[in-house]
Structure formats: C-alpha cells, structure tokens
Write a protein that binds this DNA or RNA. Structure first.
Length: 645
RNA sequence: GCCGAUGUAGCUCAGCUGGUCAGAGCUACUGAUUUGUAAUCAGUAGGUCGGGGGUUCGAAUCCCUCCAUCGGCUCCA
C-alpha cells in the first residue's frame, strides 16, 4: 500500500506505507539524507526513523532549522547523561532540554563531588561514544511499567515527571548504555555529533523553585562540524570583548569600590559626560512632549509607602528603615509616590490634564547579592522616570505618544534588536495579585494591545506578569554575553492614584480619579549606559563620546598651537584634549585610537602656518585637512544630524 | 539568598606539589630624543599576594572564616 507525502514545495511523492522520513530524504539525495536531523510530520517534529502510516505533510529538518538544532542538542544532552553515568554510577537526572545555545542537563550527583575540572573527561567520553554512532531507540511503555522501572532504580525525579504523564503516551529512548524517559524526538544516532563543548556547570533549583534543593546543571553545546564549534567559540570571545564591565574599566567610565559597597557604582568623569548627554537628550525630548520637571528627596516616611501599597509588597527589596524622631524613613525604591504627592498639591481640573511629571530620580533597591551584575543590575539607580496623569479619554493618545518616544530613541541609538513584552493579568487572580477591576483591566489591555498592533511593533504577550495596578510593556534587550534585560518599561496604573486620593474636577464639576502612566524609555542611567557600551562596543556616536576630539601636536613646538585649537573647539561646544606628552605622533595616534576618540587632529608646522588641522577619524584614518572653524562646523552639523532622526 | 569557581603592583597576567617567589609587560614619574597618521630608548617608583584566624621552623602557596567578583539558579529597571 502506498502513502502520499507532500513536501514543502507542494510536490507529492508516493512511498510504501511505513516508510520513514529518512527514506524520503534518501530518495531525494544522499547528501540530504546525511544532513537531515529530524522531520516535521503534519506539523509535529518527530524522529526521522518513525514509520509513517498515512498521507502526510513532511518537512525535513537540518542544522539550518531551529528544530533541527534543538533535536540534535536534546540528543546531545542524552549523550552527556550517558557519559556522566559512566563516571558517576547512581547519578539521577532531572530534565535535559535544548536551549537557545546548546543544552543542559540537571543532575543530582548524590553527594559525589563534581566541578568544572571534571568537564573535560566527560567531553572526551562523549566524543568516544559519539564515534560509536549508537542509534537512539524509541520504545513505548505503559505507565505502570515505567513506574516500576523507576521505582526499582530509586529515581524520585523521573517518578515525579511520570506523575504528570498520560498512560499510552510514555516513551523511552535508549542509546548505548543509557535509557531515559523522554518525549523525543531524537536524531537517528550519536554519530551526527561531531564537535562537543561543555561550557559550564552551575547550581539550579529543582523545578526552578528557590525553596527546593539544588541540582547541578551542566551546560554544553554540540555541532555537526568541528569548524562550527570553532566559529562559535570565536564569536563568544568577540562578545566578551564588548562586555561593558571590561570596556567600562578600560575607558574609565565607571568603577566599583569595596568601601562604597556592592552594586553602588562610581561614575568616573567619562561616565559623567555620558550621563550629562543622555539627560540633555531626555530633557529636550520631554520638554517638547509637554513634560514638566520636578525634583523629590531620596527618602520618605513609612506612611507614604503604606499609602501607596508598595511597602508590604516591596519591603524585601528596600533598604531597611532609618529611624529618627520616632519615625521610620525609607530610601526610595521608586519615584511614583513622591510624584503622586506633587500631583495632589497641583490640585488640577480636567482642563490642566494631562499632567506629565518627569524626574531623573535616584532610587535604591536592595538587590540580592547574587543578582548584581556590572552596571546592568545595581543597588543605586537613576531612572528616566515620568508619570503621566490623564483622563480615560486621553489615555490612548498619551500611551501612543509615549510609544512614539520609545521608537524615536531607538532610532537615535540604532537599537534594532529588541522585543516588547506585553504583560497582562490573570483573571482568576483578580483581588489577590491584581486590583479587582475587571472592566478597567480589559479596557486598558485592549487599548495597549491596539497601540502595539497599530505601530507594527514586534511584541510577545505574557499572561499573569502585569503589575498589581495594571498592564505593562517592557522592552527586552540582550547584553553582549547574551543575558536578557528589561531596558525600559511603560506601565499603566489605574489603582494607586485612588489610594492617594488623587482626583481632578471634570467638565460636569464632579471629582474623578486620573489614570497614571509610569514610563521610563531610557530605563536607568546604569543599565542604559551598560547596554550602550556593549551596543556600540565603546565606539560611541559623536554626540555621546566622552572625548570627541584629541588634538595631537607633532612635537612640543606645536603644543601652543594645539592648545589654541582646543580653545576654539571648546568655544564651539566640542569636548576635546591635547596630547602634549613627549611621544612620537604614531604613539599619540595609537593611544587615541585605543581610547576610541572619534576624531584626531594632527597639528604641526604646516597646520600652524595655514591655521588648519589634519583630520583623522577613528577607525577610518586620514580625512584630509580643514580650517579650524570648518572642522567645528562639520562636527556640530554631524551631532545635529545624529540627534534629529 | 543558593550552587560552583576566582581574588598577586593603577591595568593585564606569571609564580608547579610550602623554603632567594614577591616577578613581567603596559601605565605613571625622570632623563635623552623633537618626531607627520596605530607602540623611540634608558632609568625610577609601585604590592604586608582580598581581610582575619589557624597549621608549620617557615605560607602568595595548605586549612577555617568573612568580604568581593565571575558563571548559573531564584528575583528584577
């Protein structure tokens, strides 16, 4: 009996019933058959060796498909488990999935010591087992049978997994000496795995729950070719060079000091410039958008955080209270309550709305020690914060305007890789985790979703992650080493204003509670600058660069002229320095290049006589000569263009 | 906070199993050199080897503890 297989190009081929996807691949070409890793059969990713019994849509998946990669990585996790079992008999395994870059397996070594030093021997064993090209054999088992198997083995982890599985759908896979409970799919045999790197070993809570015991998680990655592993390792090496902690030190942007405390960055002069420039941009942008600037203290009494509702919810991440005059004071972890108090003082009518209060507010959050991470996760932070108070009718327009501001900033910084994460509420948790106002939740979530759709912004919707007072949008970006961060946030709050008794008089002379939008498009100085360092690899655009121009005299005879050039630059609002060290010009150029200064001006006898400068651009070399004034004009024009996109 | 690792001059690092092991390069400073588009030469200075405790005749090296950092987990802007 024949079955019809439809391939992605819609061509249909006939095969005997029970043929496998691998048979199909072989019928197309020998090369494809060698490279194919898994198959999508009627939408589901399956083993290549699974017999197909009826007509089907078939896509053959190779290393170029995400599912092909993850199938191979998942099989690699099994291979690693086999190697581990060889050296550590009696180890227990929890789960071993494929992840973005490779795979991991969570392992309970039962008290046997295991550290990064042991990875090499596991790697070598894996390579040896891979060479044997052992097939991954699938076997269906009844639930009772499976329970008996793991009870005998004393494996409480797999028994736990079994608890959630339906009888009749339980499959096992065996390769070589290792058998695992597993849904699959897998590659046909271990021989596909040609290059192996175990990358690190770390602790991970069982079931990702901090109250559970900790398992040992071993991460690794494999490739079908040795050269691809080498490329991957080289790519990692490049990424490490962009790490903001490394560049931040080299470029003297920030530092940490033991006496100051963990997570409390000191901004060095170059970092100070970055902050000044970012604030200049934000203040201009916000002024144009109708924001008013306010300033508030770094601390407040306990009563305010009880009013806002933050204290019970947030106390663990606030610095403990300071007590004086019989009152408790807290360092602020957020600016909103202070701003609410300002709104109240303004006592506006509907004619005054929307009111937009902006402040680069400094907050303090007691982050757990293990969470601290360079500038990306700190304990003192300055937020590009603002709160917009508006009527329900004004909400959509205001929210849209905030969104436009985000997009404008992204254009200025050339931020292209990001995802908007739209967090909504879970209706069953109304009144507990979320403010109990189902209609407002639905209304605002619909409005927010519509804004995202209308602006054609890529976004993912994540249920049950909203703030307690409303839905929110977070902008997710990635650090050089691939860690995901929330860069900016935009939250809707239809609850806390009422707790503060905020109101305005509407057109019908009634009191009404405003909706509040919390927004921070530039996140915090700390995280944003950390991100920018990696984004630009330290090669900041001209307007941000801490030093924009290095004036390099050929010899000390021209130091005087160099200083004259610098004065003129400063008069034209350009930041610069003169390198008047007793060094050769090659050395001065090299040092300025290493410091990533956008422009170098070489000045010697010729330049002094002609009142001009020889322009060299960072990374681009000699650009010819210009008069001093023409150079200043050129730079100012360049800055204007960078900022007016 | 949890698991694991690391911690030597301002920076990057060497220093094997305890006994000229306190070193190198860069930086800084001094002097010579007066230089034309990515490193001129020479000299000098700089560290109680993260802090504290212990083992030992003797500790950067071994043990304990605290602190910090790194890789993850949990959490988050």
């Amino acid at each position: 009996m024949q079955i019809k297989i439809t391939l992605p190009d819609q061509s249909v081929r006939e095969f005997p019933k029970g043929s496998t996807a691998l048979d199909v691949a072989k019928s197309i070409s020998e090369g494809l058959a060698r490279n194919v890793l898994a198959a999508r059969i009627n939408g589901e990713v399956r083993d290549l060796t699974l017999p197909i019994d009826e007509d089907a849509q078939l896509t053959l998946l190779t290393w170029n498909d995400a599912e092909g990669k993850s199938t191979m990585w998942h099989s690699s996790a099994h291979l690693m488990a086999e190697a581990l079992e060889h050296f550590y008999p009696g180890v227990k395994f929890w789960v071993g999935p494929a992840v973005q870059n490779g795979f991991y397996y969570d392992v309970d070594f039962g008290g046997q010591a295991f550290s990064a030093d042991d990875l090499k021997k596991i790697e070598d064993k894996m390579a040896e087992l891979a060479k044997q090209a052992n097939p991954y054999e699938r076997k269906l088992m009844s639930k009772d049978e499976a329970i008996r198997y793991f009870t005998e083995k004393g494996d409480q982890y797999k028994l736990d997994l079994l608890g959630n599985l339906q009888d009749g759908s339980i499959t096992f896979y065996t390769q070589g000496s290792f058998t695992d409970l597993c849904r699959g799919p897998h590659i046909p045999h271990t021989g596909y795995i040609k290059a192996i790197k175990l990358t690190n070993v770390a602790g991970a809570y069982w079931k990702n729950d901090a109250s559970n015991p900790m398992l040992t998680r071993i991460y690794g990655i494999t490739f079908p070719k040795k050269s691809e592993l080498d490329e991957y390792l080289a790519m990692l090496e490049e990424a490490r060079k962009r790490d903001h902690r490394k560049i931040g030190k080299e470029m003297e942007i920030f530092t940490f000091d033991d006496d100051v405390g963990p997570g409390l960055p000191l901004w060095l002069p170059n970092g100070g410039v970055l902050i000044e420039e970012l604030e200049r941009l934000a203040k201009k942008t916000e002024a144009v958008a109708g924001y008013k600037r306010v300033r508030t203290p770094h601390l407040a009494k306990e009563s305010m955080y009880l009013t806002s509702g933050h204290l019970p919810y947030y106390e663990d991440s606030m610095y403990p209270a300071m007590e004086f005059d019989g009152e408790k004071y807290y360092l602020k972890a957020m600016n909103c309550p202070h701003h609410h108090k300002i709104f109240k003082e303004l006592n506006p009518s509907y004619r005054d709305l929307p009111i937009r209060l902006a402040e680069y507010g400094t907050c303090y959050r007691y982050e757990q020690s293990g969470e601290l991470f360079g500038l990306m996760r700190v304990r003192s932070l300055q937020m590009n914060d603002a709160h917009i108070y508006c009527t329900r009718e004004q909400f959509a327009e205001e929210f849209n305007a905030v969104n436009d501001m985000y997009l404008k900033y992204f254009r200025i910084f050339g931020i292209e890789k990001y995802v908007m994460r739209f967090s909504t509420h879970e209706p069953s948790k109304l009144g507990q985790k979320y403010v109990n106002n189902p209609e407002l939740w639905k209304q605002t979530e619909d409005m927010v979703r519509q804004v995202l759709i209308d602006s054609k912004i890529p976004y993912v919707e994540v249920p049950d992650e909203g703030a307690f007072y409303g839905p929110k949008i977070d902008v997710q970006v990635w650090s050089a080493i691939g860690r995901e961060f929330t860069l900016a946030t935009n939250q809707v709050d239809f609850a806390v204003p009422a707790r503060f008794g905020l109101s305005f008089r509407n057109a019908k002379n009634e009191m009404e509670t405003p909706i509040c939008i919390h927004r921070a498009p530039l996140g915090t100085h700390e995280r944003f600058i950390g991100f920018l360092i990696e984004h630009f690899a330290g090669n900041f655009p001209l307007w941000l660069a801490p030093e924009q121009v290095a004036v390099l005299p050929i010899s000390d005879k021209f130091n005087g002229y160099a200083k004259k050039v610098l004065r003129q630059l400063i008069n034209s609002d350009i930041r610069g320095l003169v390198d008047d060290r007793d060094e050769k010009i090659g050395k001065k150029i090299r040092d300025a290049e290493v410091k990533k200064i956008p422009y170098m001006l070489i000045v010697g006898e010729k330049e002094e006589q002609e009142s001009c400068v020889s322009v060299r651009q960072h990374g681009k070399g000699d650009q010819g000569s210009l008069s001093i004034q023409a150079f200043c004009d050129k730079l100012n024009k360049e800055v204007d263009e960078l900022l007016s996109v």
